[in-house]
Design a protein around this nucleic acid. Structure first.
Length: 454
DNA sequence: CAGGTC
DNA sequence: TCTGG
């Protein structure tokens, strides 16, 4: 049994990966990371802790205030696999790519990039698990990012075992937006979160899955997921023989998907397109974010929009837009495209790299913390009442609550069927701009660029 | 309406 | 077109 698995990863000045610009679900790459604001503890200032459940472990990551290093700890299950979390993080976060250098190159080549996307320097494209990536982007069709994230979490809760429950210190707060000062839960309870791994292909290939996914609100995507899982497992079974175990089949499915990394863009794409629920856009997302195809440009409605408005590309033909944008940015066009996509996301309007958003380890942050934490908490209590709870109708998958001094085993794990009648849940009204909850980091005004075209 | 697909 | 924020 491995020990705690703590460690620090230092990032060179050439690759200052900023976690809120990569793993936050608002960015639309990974949808499963949780972000918890852990309050002041002794001499330490408050900090943001990101966490994700892998197959055999839960990984917790905190970035330092200057974005130069990542501190991580790991909780394993009873049968850990032999790979180090540090190595996994380095690979997953693509820490060895000189992304900041690329930002400079894109900005030099393209004044439009310089103007709209260079503020996302520190962003990065992840190197994700292809199976999870495939499922997540099947869910993404005709869908919004919060619900994609919700659906991915539902997959984990309902189709994979509970691996770990983390009990966070009192006053810890689950964050939903990029702004850690968001209006959020005023909890005196200990925050407890349940961690399930992403489900295996063989589990999602079982016959009951489509129906259950429909009950869970997946709509027409239920069939896509079930069919894709089944197709991949059947292909693996053919090469393994009829008596292959589920474990062997899963391993083969993962291996088959990873092999796509060694293929050309077009060959890998043609392997993905026959899968149910995978069209050109979804395929390009998977290629870009999990299969090493840095030139892949997923063309969605946002891209059509800025291609026309900023680059004068008028066509509605998918391949033509992608080709013309590749001509602008070159071989890593898919990376460049992602940060222009960020520029079009309302949820990233308020992102400011100079704030070290979400790091909160500097002395100044600490001072501000001391001033604000008590004051803001009081304000919050006066308005919402001390019993105010998170709006769980918005993020039902996030909540596993416990009473203040409960042991970790006596948990109330939130069940969807009780969602409609939780009397304690207070619905938070949206605060208007002049209310006290509007915190100082909300600097940038919402522009009109998302609205109607002339 | 929301990062399409069949 | 499924569905909900």
């Amino acid at each position: 049994m491995p020990p705690g698995g703590n460690g620090v990863i230092s990032m060179g000045p050439g690759c200052p990966v900023v976690l809120p610009l990569t793993i936050a679900h608002q960015c639309g790459q990974a949808f499963r990371w949780r972000k918890v604001l852990v309050p002041l503890q002794g001499k330490e200032s408050r900090r943001l802790e990101w966490s994700l459940c892998l197959r055999d472990r839960v990984v917790f990551v905190t970035q330092d205030g200057a974005n130069h290093s990542l501190a991580h700890r790991t909780v394993y299950n009873s049968n850990p696999e032999p790979f180090s979390t540090a190595a996994w993080l380095r690979d997953y976060l693509n820490l060895d790519t000189p992304a900041s250098q690329w930002f400079a190159e894109w900005s030099e080549k393209d004044p439009i990039f310089a103007k709209h996307a260079n503020r996302f320097s520190g962003g990065n494209i992840l190197r994700q698990d292809p199976w999870e990536c495939l499922c997540a982007f099947i869910c993404s069709s005709n869908n919004n990012i919060p619900r994609i994230s919700q659906m991915v979490h539902k997959l984990c809760e309902h189709f994979s075992p509970l691996l770990h429950v983390e009990q966070y210190p009192k006053g810890s707060r689950l964050c939903h937006s990029l702004d850690v000062n968001e209006l959020a839960e005023a909890s005196t309870d200990a925050l407890c979160l349940a961690y399930h791994p992403f489900p295996t292909p063989s589990r999602l290939a079982e016959p009951d899955v489509e129906g259950r996914l429909r009950e869970l609100g997946f709509g027409y995507r239920a069939k896509y997921l079930a069919q894709t899982a089944y197709a991949l497992c059947e292909k693996a079974r053919e090469s393994l023989g009829f008596n292959a175990s589920a474990e062997k089949i899963d391993q083969r499915v993962y291996a088959n998907l990873l092999e796509l990394r060694s293929l050309s863009y077009h060959d890998a794409r043609n392997q993905l397109l026959p899968l149910s629920g995978v069209g050109p856009k979804v395929a390009d997302c998977i290629l870009l974010m999990s299969l090493d195809q840095a030139s892949s440009i997923p063309v969605d409605r946002h891209v059509f929009q800025f291609a026309e408005r900023w680059y004068g590309i008028r066509t509605k033909r998918y391949e033509e837009v992608a080709e013309k944008l590749r001509a602008v940015w070159g071989e890593r066009a898919g990376w460049a495209h992602s940060f222009l996509f960020y520029a079009d996301l309302p949820s990233l309007d308020f992102y400011d790299s100079n704030d070290h958003m979400g790091a909160y380890n500097t002395e100044e942050d600490k001072k501000q913390d001391l001033l604000l934490s008590s004051a803001h908490q009081t304000e919050f209590d006066q308005e919402m009442g001390p019993e105010a709870k998170l709006d769980t109708t918005q993020y039902p998958y996030l909540t596993v609550k416990s009473e203040p001094d409960e042991t970790s085993l006596n948990l109330v794990i939130k069940d969807d069927s009780h969602l409609s009648d939780t009397p304690e849940t207070i619905k938070h009204e949206q605060s208007s701009p002049d209310e006290p909850h509007q915190r100082p980091t909300l600097k940038r005004a919402r522009t009109a660029r998302h609205r109607a075209k002339p």
